[in-house]
Design a protein around this nucleic acid. Structure first.
Length: 186
DNA sequence: CACCAGGCCCTAT
DNA sequence: ATAGGGCATGGT
Protein backbone atom coordinates (compact mmCIF):
# COMPACT_ATOMS: atom_id res chain seq x y z
CA UNK A 1 0.00 0.00 0.00
CA UNK A 2 1.77 3.08 -1.15
CA UNK A 3 2.00 6.11 1.05
CA UNK A 4 -0.35 8.27 -0.99
CA UNK A 5 -3.23 6.05 -0.04
CA UNK A 6 -2.92 7.03 3.57
CA UNK A 7 -1.88 10.62 3.45
CA UNK A 8 -2.52 12.02 0.03
CA UNK A 9 -5.90 10.59 -0.74
CA UNK A 10 -9.01 11.03 1.31
CA UNK A 11 -9.91 7.78 3.00
CA UNK A 12 -13.49 6.91 2.16
CA UNK A 13 -14.57 3.56 3.54
CA UNK A 14 -14.60 2.75 7.24
CA UNK A 15 -11.96 0.17 6.49
CA UNK A 16 -9.65 2.77 4.98
CA UNK A 17 -10.29 5.06 7.91
CA UNK A 18 -9.30 2.41 10.42
CA UNK A 19 -6.19 1.82 8.39
CA UNK A 20 -5.37 5.52 8.69
CA UNK A 21 -5.74 5.33 12.44
CA UNK A 22 -3.46 2.33 12.68
CA UNK A 23 -0.97 3.96 10.33
CA UNK A 24 -0.99 7.17 12.36
CA UNK A 25 0.22 5.30 15.41
CA UNK A 26 2.65 3.04 13.61
CA UNK A 27 4.37 5.91 11.84
CA UNK A 28 5.38 7.68 15.03
CA UNK A 29 9.08 8.45 14.72
CA UNK A 30 9.38 5.86 11.97
CA UNK A 31 10.05 5.68 8.27
CA UNK A 32 6.91 5.11 6.27
CA UNK A 33 8.46 2.16 4.41
CA UNK A 34 8.55 0.24 7.66
CA UNK A 35 4.96 1.09 8.39
CA UNK A 36 3.95 -0.25 4.99
CA UNK A 37 5.45 -3.62 5.83
CA UNK A 38 3.69 -3.67 9.18
CA UNK A 39 0.32 -2.84 7.68
CA UNK A 40 0.78 -5.45 5.01
CA UNK A 41 1.43 -7.98 7.76
CA UNK A 42 -1.68 -6.87 9.63
CA UNK A 43 -3.78 -7.22 6.52
CA UNK A 44 -2.43 -10.63 5.73
CA UNK A 45 -3.30 -11.71 9.26
CA UNK A 46 -6.72 -10.09 8.93
CA UNK A 47 -5.92 -7.86 11.87
CA UNK A 48 -6.05 -4.46 10.23
CA UNK A 49 -9.10 -3.34 12.16
CA UNK A 50 -9.77 -1.95 15.61
CA UNK A 51 -12.18 -4.69 16.49
CA UNK A 52 -9.80 -7.46 15.48
CA UNK A 53 -7.00 -5.85 17.41
CA UNK A 54 -9.23 -5.60 20.45
CA UNK A 55 -10.28 -9.25 20.19
CA UNK A 56 -6.80 -10.61 19.55
CA UNK A 57 -4.93 -8.61 22.18
CA UNK A 58 -1.73 -6.68 21.95
CA UNK A 59 0.78 -9.52 22.20
CA UNK A 60 -0.43 -10.99 18.95
CA UNK A 61 0.50 -7.78 17.22
CA UNK A 62 4.18 -8.02 18.16
CA UNK A 63 5.48 -10.08 15.26
CA UNK A 64 3.26 -8.31 12.75
CA UNK A 65 4.11 -4.72 13.54
CA UNK A 66 7.73 -5.37 14.45
CA UNK A 67 9.03 -3.76 11.24
CA UNK A 68 7.53 -0.42 12.30
CA UNK A 69 9.80 -0.27 15.34
CA UNK A 70 8.96 0.38 19.01
CA UNK A 71 6.64 -2.56 18.54
CA UNK A 72 5.82 -3.30 22.16
CA UNK A 73 4.74 0.24 22.82
CA UNK A 74 2.88 0.63 19.59
CA UNK A 75 1.04 -2.64 20.12
CA UNK A 76 -0.04 -1.33 23.49
CA UNK A 77 -1.12 2.00 22.03
CA UNK A 78 -3.15 0.30 19.31
CA UNK A 79 -4.82 -1.95 21.83
CA UNK A 80 -5.60 0.90 24.21
CA UNK A 81 -7.16 2.92 21.41
CA UNK A 82 -9.15 -0.04 20.12
CA UNK A 83 -10.55 -0.69 23.58
CA UNK A 84 -11.56 2.91 23.96
CA UNK A 85 -13.30 3.20 20.60
CA UNK A 86 -15.17 -0.07 20.93
CA UNK A 87 -16.28 0.39 24.51
CA UNK A 88 -17.26 4.01 24.27
CA UNK A 89 -18.56 4.27 20.70
CA UNK A 90 -18.86 0.76 19.28
CA UNK A 91 -17.56 1.94 15.91
CA UNK A 92 -16.18 4.88 13.96
CA UNK A 93 -19.55 5.78 12.57
CA UNK A 94 -20.93 6.51 16.03
CA UNK A 95 -17.72 8.12 17.09
CA UNK A 96 -17.98 10.66 14.27
CA UNK A 97 -21.18 12.02 15.77
CA UNK A 98 -19.40 13.22 18.89
CA UNK A 99 -18.25 16.82 19.19
CA UNK A 100 -14.76 17.57 17.97
CA UNK A 101 -13.46 19.13 21.19
CA UNK A 102 -14.63 16.17 23.23
CA UNK A 103 -13.06 13.68 20.84
CA UNK A 104 -9.77 15.53 20.87
CA UNK A 105 -9.65 15.54 24.65
CA UNK A 106 -10.52 11.87 24.79
CA UNK A 107 -7.89 10.92 22.25
CA UNK A 108 -5.21 12.96 23.98
CA UNK A 109 -5.98 11.25 27.26
CA UNK A 110 -5.11 7.86 25.77
CA UNK A 111 -1.63 6.49 26.16
CA UNK A 112 0.48 6.98 23.06
CA UNK A 113 -1.70 9.59 21.46
CA UNK A 114 -0.27 13.08 21.38
CA UNK A 115 -1.40 16.13 19.42
CA UNK A 116 -0.21 15.00 16.01
CA UNK A 117 -1.65 11.53 16.19
CA UNK A 118 -4.91 12.81 17.66
CA UNK A 119 -5.32 15.41 14.96
CA UNK A 120 -4.47 12.98 12.16
CA UNK A 121 -7.22 10.72 13.43
CA UNK A 122 -9.65 13.62 13.76
CA UNK A 123 -8.99 14.95 10.27
CA UNK A 124 -8.59 11.80 8.22
CA UNK A 125 -10.67 9.20 10.02
CA UNK A 126 -13.33 11.26 11.74
CA UNK A 127 -13.47 14.03 9.14
CA UNK A 128 -13.24 16.91 11.57
CA UNK A 129 -11.82 20.21 10.34
CA UNK A 130 -8.60 20.16 12.35
CA UNK A 131 -5.28 21.04 10.77
CA UNK A 132 -2.50 18.54 11.41
CA UNK A 133 0.90 19.89 12.41
CA UNK A 134 3.82 17.56 11.92
CA UNK A 135 7.52 17.61 11.22
CA UNK A 136 6.96 18.53 7.58
CA UNK A 137 4.62 21.38 8.45
CA UNK A 138 7.24 22.66 10.83
CA UNK A 139 9.94 22.47 8.16
CA UNK A 140 7.71 24.36 5.74
CA UNK A 141 7.06 27.06 8.31
CA UNK A 142 10.77 27.37 8.97
CA UNK A 143 11.69 27.36 5.29
CA UNK A 144 9.30 30.14 4.39
CA UNK A 145 9.76 31.91 7.71
CA UNK A 146 6.05 31.77 8.30
CA UNK A 147 6.52 31.98 12.04
CA UNK A 148 9.28 32.04 14.60
CA UNK A 149 7.12 30.25 17.08
CA UNK A 150 6.98 26.66 15.93
CA UNK A 151 4.91 25.32 18.78
CA UNK A 152 2.13 22.96 17.83
CA UNK A 153 -0.72 25.15 18.93
CA UNK A 154 0.63 28.31 17.39
CA UNK A 155 1.25 26.78 13.96
CA UNK A 156 -2.13 25.13 14.05
CA UNK A 157 -3.78 28.49 14.64
CA UNK A 158 -1.95 30.06 11.73
CA UNK A 159 -3.08 27.40 9.28
CA UNK A 160 -6.61 27.14 10.57
CA UNK A 161 -7.13 30.88 10.49
CA UNK A 162 -5.59 31.25 7.05
CA UNK A 163 -7.65 28.57 5.35
CA UNK A 164 -11.29 28.04 4.76
CA UNK A 165 -12.54 25.60 7.38
CA UNK A 166 -13.01 22.59 5.14
CA UNK A 167 -12.21 18.95 5.78
CA UNK A 168 -11.14 18.01 2.24
CA UNK A 169 -9.10 21.20 1.98
CA UNK A 170 -7.29 20.48 5.24
CA UNK A 171 -6.71 16.89 4.18
CA UNK A 172 -5.27 17.78 0.81
CA UNK A 173 -3.29 20.74 2.10
CA UNK A 174 -1.54 18.68 4.73
CA UNK A 175 -0.88 15.90 2.25
CA UNK A 176 0.68 18.40 -0.15
CA UNK A 177 2.94 19.77 2.56
CA UNK A 178 4.24 16.26 3.15
CA UNK A 179 4.78 15.74 -0.55
CA UNK A 180 6.55 19.09 -0.82
CA UNK A 181 8.85 18.17 2.04
CA UNK A 182 9.75 14.81 0.59
CA UNK A 183 10.28 16.10 -2.92
CA UNK A 184 12.49 18.99 -1.86
CA UNK A 185 14.17 17.06 0.88
CA UNK A 186 13.85 20.05 3.16
C1' DC B 1 28.96 0.78 10.29
C1' DA B 2 26.47 5.06 11.66
C1' DC B 3 22.63 7.56 11.13
C1' DC B 4 17.92 8.46 10.19
C1' DA B 5 12.70 8.24 10.11
C1' DG B 6 5.76 12.50 9.86
C1' DG B 7 6.02 10.88 18.53
C1' DC B 8 5.14 10.23 22.85
C1' DC B 9 5.96 8.77 27.75
C1' DC B 10 8.44 9.09 31.89
C1' DT B 11 11.61 10.99 35.07
C1' DA B 12 14.50 14.29 37.13
C1' DT B 13 15.62 19.08 37.82
C1' DA C 1 7.84 24.13 33.01
C1' DT C 2 11.18 21.90 30.40
C1' DA C 3 15.11 19.02 29.11
C1' DG C 4 16.83 14.37 28.17
C1' DG C 5 16.67 9.40 27.77
C1' DG C 6 14.17 5.40 26.09
C1' DC C 7 11.66 2.87 22.79
C1' DA C 8 13.38 -0.79 17.88
C1' DT C 9 13.34 -1.64 13.12
C1' DG C 10 14.73 -1.46 8.04
C1' DG C 11 16.82 1.67 4.54
C1' DT C 12 20.76 4.25 2.86
Amino acid sequence: MPQWRLWCKRPKTLCEKEEVIIGAILTQRTNWKNVEIAIKNLKKARLCSLKKIYLKGEKNLYPLIKPAGFFQRKANYLYTLSCFVLKKYKNLKNMKKEKTEILRKELLSLKGIGPETADSILLYALEKPIFVIDEYTRRLAKYYKISKNLSYHHLQEIFEKGLKKSVPLFQDFHALIVEWGKKNNV
